[in-house]
Design a binder for these strands. Sequence first.
DNA 1: CGAGTCCTGTGT
DNA 2: ACACAGGACTCG
Length: 276
Amino acid sequence: MPELPEVETVVRGLSAVLPGREIVAVEVLHKPSVEGSPKKPNCLRGQRVLSVTRRGKFIRVSLASGLGMAVHLRMTGWLGVVPVKEPNALNDAYVRVRFKLDGGAEQLIFRDIRTFGRVWCGPVDGLDKLKSLAKLGPEPLEISDDEFATRLRSHGSRLKALLLNQEFIVGIGNIYADEALFGAALHPLSVSSKISVAKARELHRSIQSVLRSAIEAGGSSIENFRNVKGESGWFQRELLAYGREGEACSRCKGVIQRIVMGQRGTWFCPRCQKKK
DNA sequence: CGAGTCCTGTGT
DNA sequence: ACACAGGACTCG
C-alpha cells in the first residue's frame, strides 16, 4: 500500500523518536515476515539506533556495530511506536514483529494484515546487497528532468508500467503513477519512446509535484495507511484520477475512466490524456 | 507483455 | 460468491 510519500512519512516519524534508543528484545510472531541473515533478528538486541532512512519504498534502520534492518511494507505493513501497557488499536493480532525499546514503556511494532511485508536483519552493507534493494533505480526527487527524460525515452514500455518499475525509478506505485500521468496529461498506455523530450520533462515535474504535495499531506490513507503515531494522511482527498471512475475530470469536460492494466486498476481521463 | 502467486479483509 | 486492494516476484 505505501508508496514513496507514505514511506517517507513513516521514516520521518521514526527519525524523530528512534535514534538513540536501544532495542532490548525482539519477538517474532510470524516467522515468514522476517528474512535475511541471520534469520533471527535477536542479533539486534542491545543495539542502539543510529538512523532511519528511506531508499525507494524500503525503510532502513541503522544500528551501532554495523548491524541494521531493512523493512518493506508492501501492501498493508505498518511500523510504529506504541506503549507496552496501554491498549492500542494497532497493537493487535496482526502484529508480526515486536521490538522492545529501552525504558520498557514503548515498543516498535511491525504490523501487517496481508503478510506481504518483510523485515530483513543483518549487517548494513549486507542489506544494501539485497537483490531488490541493490537493483533500485534513481530517486525521482533527486534526478533532473533531463536525466529522467533521457531514461524514459530510451525504453519502449507503456508509461504506467515504466513508472511502476522500481528499476526504472523508485517509489512510485499505483496511486502516484496515475496522478503523475494525469498531471502531465499523458495516457497510461502511451509508449515511452514516442514521448517528446518536453513532454517527458513535464512528466518528471508532475511526478515531483505530486510526490512533494503528498509528503506534505502525510501521505494518502485510502484504507490502511497510518503514520507512526497511527494517524491518517489526507492526500487521498487531493487525488484527481485514482479511484475517481465516473467522476468529472477536473481539467476538461471528460469523465474519469477505469481500465485494468497488468492486473492493476488504472484511472485516467480519456479526453485530455490522449494516447501517443 | 500477461497471468498467477503470496495473504487477509472489505464491499457488492 | 466474486471482485478488488498503496507491491513485487516468478513463470511462460
